[in-house]
Design a binder for these strands. Structure first.
Ligand code: FES
Ligand code: FES
Lengths: 141, 141
DNA sequence: ATAAACCTGACTAAAATAGTCAAGTATCTA
DNA sequence: TAGATACTTGACTATTTTAGTCAGGTTTAT
């Protein structure tokens, strides 16, 4: 089970943005430099964040991105959802009565993986961007 | 974040084994048929489980595998550890002071991913094979 | 006008996953 | 003691996913 860079970068970038959000839009270039994430990759990520209305874009010179909601209303769940970083403990569809690989019934461990998925998602539901910014108030970079 | 088949199968197979463990060794062939997991793949998995002393092998006809410990003493953690299904939320080494990609310091979100990793591992530390067997006492297959 | 910054889609190298395949060895039973 | 069953090991491979890159835009402040 591993977290992908895309998910990690999305959160990292938003924490950065949230910290500098007060005054002006924050350009991806700045985030790229500060956080060491490829600019092209950031663009992909922010395009998704914008579509899900987590950030707003400001075009042209001096442009950049701003948060579209209060930091405390942006949960990790929202971020991960936006960039398609989903928790998947099984291959079978949740709605379907069928099991993995099209088997007639769910497997012996199916219930366990559901629990696991919930357990992880609970964590993401609780953490907000505001929490993350607060944890880093004392940092320079 | 997704759970791999290897991890899922390892647990599935062990739950199956634990249910039939009372009388005779359980052959991989039987597990393969009951759970619909490729025999060759199971062999890979059980070879690891044996090396980590989670199961014991009995060779020859009527052979198979038996649990090497009480079901309540086998936690998900032990199983995942044996088959190298590890939770990895970051790329940087835990011990090192350096961050991802060899950066001088840890990133803004590093602490968060540590928390997440602990959160998930807690789940695995608590669930035992015995718990899983009990949940399925009423099942036929 | 031009430079800064957003915007989009296509493309790709590398890694990980999910197995398969082949060639054994050990042990029980007839 | 032959044969069948089942464990044992290591190498091999197709597919998928990841983690980006690249090229070519458009918008807007100055
Ligand atoms: S996880 Fe899909 S059937 Fe159990
Ligand atoms: S996750 Fe590696 S430096 Fe933050």
């Amino acid at each position: 089970m591993k977290l992908t860079s895309k998910g990690r970068y999305a959160v990292m970038a938003l924490v950065d943005l949230a910290r500098f959000n007060n005054i002006n839009p924050v350009s991806l270039r700045d985030i790229s430099l500060r956080q060491g994430i490829s600019l092209d990759y950031l663009e992909q990520i922010f395009s998704k964040l914008r579509r899900k209305e987590i950030v707003q874009s400001v075009r042209g010179i001096q442009g950049g991105y701003v948060l579209n909601k209060k930091a405390k209303d942006i949960k990790l769940t929202n971020i991960f959802d936006a960039v398609d970083e989903k928790v998947k403990t099984v291959q079978c569809k949740k709605e379907s009565k069928k099991g993995c690989n099209g088997k007639a019934i769910k497997c012996l461990t199916h219930n366990l993986w559901d629990e696991l998925e919930n357990h992880i998602n609970n964590f993401f539901d609780e953490k907000s961007l505001e929490d993350l910014v607060k944890e880093n108030n004392d940092r320079r970079v």
